[in-house]
Design a protein around this nucleic acid. Sequence first.
RNA 1: GCCCACGUAGCUCAGUCGGUAGAGCGCGUCCUUGGUAAGGACGAGGUCACCGGUUCAAAUCCGGUCGUGGGCUCCA
Length: 574
Amino acid sequence: MSAPDLNTVRHSAAHVLAAALQSLYPDVKFDIGPATAEGFYYDIDMAHRLTPEDLKAIEKEMKKTLGRRLPFERLEWSRQEAHDFFASRGQGYKLERLGDIPEGEVISVYRCGDFTDLCRGPHVEHSGQIGAVKLLSIAGSYFRGDEKNPMLQRVYGTAFHSREDLDAYLQAIEEARRRDHRKIAAEMELFSTHEDVGPGLVCWHPRGARVRHAIESFWKDMHYAHGYELLYTPHIGRARLWETSGHLDFYRESMYSAMEIDENDYYVKPMNCPFHIQIYQNRPRSYRELPLRWAELGTVYRYEKAGVLHGLLRVRGFTQDDAHIICTPEQIESEITEVLRFSLSLWKAFGFSDIKAYLATRPAKAVGEPARWEQALQSLEKAVKACGLACEVDAGGGAFYGPKIDLKIKDAIGREWQTTTIQFDFNLPERFDMTYVGADGQRHRPYMVHRALLGSLERFFGILVEHYAGAFPTWLAPEQVRVLPISEQYSAYAGDVARALRSAGVRVEVDEAADPIGGKIRRARQQRLPYMAIVGEREAADGTVAVRSRAGEEGALPLADFVQRVREEIAARR
RNA sequence: GCCCACGUAGCUCAGUCGGUAGAGCGCGUCCUUGGUAAGGACGAGGUCACCGGUUCAAAUCCGGUCGUGGGCUCCA
């Protein structure tokens, strides 16, 4: 007998959860209980509000069922039989779900012990095949995910073939918690938010700002090197601009309310594009100057529901690494390929190489000529192919204004993050009546592509902190070297060492505390320093430093050699 | 926004039955002047998130507000 697949195990575990709930809370009404990527859940409705303590009791009940090796029995019922069964038990949500099943389809139920559930299956043969279960959390969830519907209680859990697999999973969760950027960034004094500033609004501290500056400088250099120009645009713009762009029509609920200045309404920008278009429109444009690649680290503000804010990963004010490419139809393919290549090289520089592409095509409601959509889509597909990326297609998943490619990157512990987005826009060029004069002397409509590679600096920074667990590579570290004098007697030499490093462009500080060397080392390790330069009598006499890296002691090095080593490492972005 | 949980010193957390606030780390001063993951002594820090209620008395009980966290929906 081969082991059932994990999804089946988890799906069956959800049934066992439901059975346990049924025996403990007789008034429980069930919605659905599917397997998920990491486990399973069951959505329920009942008078009792579950608490974390309840989970223990429920889990105990479930484990009894596992031990009993109860068979899962599949039955096929007529619609009437199923209806009567669930109606007689007051299972209204199940009746609604039953109504979703198209006429003519087989209606199956699964029975395990006293619990019978409407279910497509498949399931394990008996509950003993569910190796290990654990309930994880309780949450609220709307019936059918719609906030107009009643709020149900959701119990999350997970199941594995074996206790060992479950333990490994729990350890992975623990590891993710250990890397939490909110915790690490607080320890490292990288950023903070404040009740009096407002939720989702980030204040960058000196050390966070040092890392951000390193990211931004590299980003700007790379953009100039790739044929981009940099722009700066205002944070607010008049209502007319947002009327023309259509944001006030389609995006208003994400924009902050207007402020009145000299009897005109101004809005804080949720996007940078209208400003870039204004610059384009400043004078007639010729095909000879296309493509234009205009980039900006543009800070935008969007209203996000209070409940979705999360550290740096989901905020209300953020800086997009935005750019707009304006080009002719002939240029579109090579432009897209270039953007993708550029993006991949950027990700590689930051230590990410496991990347997948997601292509989203034309939705039912869309603006723009079908021929343009077709050409755009082909250019996206060819670019993905040219870069050798794995790609999934989300048919009909594009925005109404154009198709797009999103990239998802995998971090050090295997989590996927959506970051880069490359989106065609057939809407704004029309709305602003953007044109260029072609070789034929006629006015033509350019293609316009929005793209953000890192996404937003806030979110990217959060991902980066978790990816490296705060141990940034030297070129990004907020403090690259700390000089640790053995005692105060050597603070003059420590100052010399720091000066030499600083003038070589190294971010360096001296630990002047009256602690013994062990304490200073411990502190520097906790703060995840890439290098310590320990100096005492021998080093002062020889003009050397005793180097300690994250790997441990590396022995004494002449100061000039050490400066050279750190400098090379930074230059190579290691 | 909605459901649930949480909010005590800069950080991590104790605080019993309602009786007026504690520890460790960090911070400051002094002593120690040291050789690779915590030297020692003393000291300063709190409107117990905020507002209101119950009570002789509230960190503790009740209500509201704000914030944070786990989810739902959407997305950078």
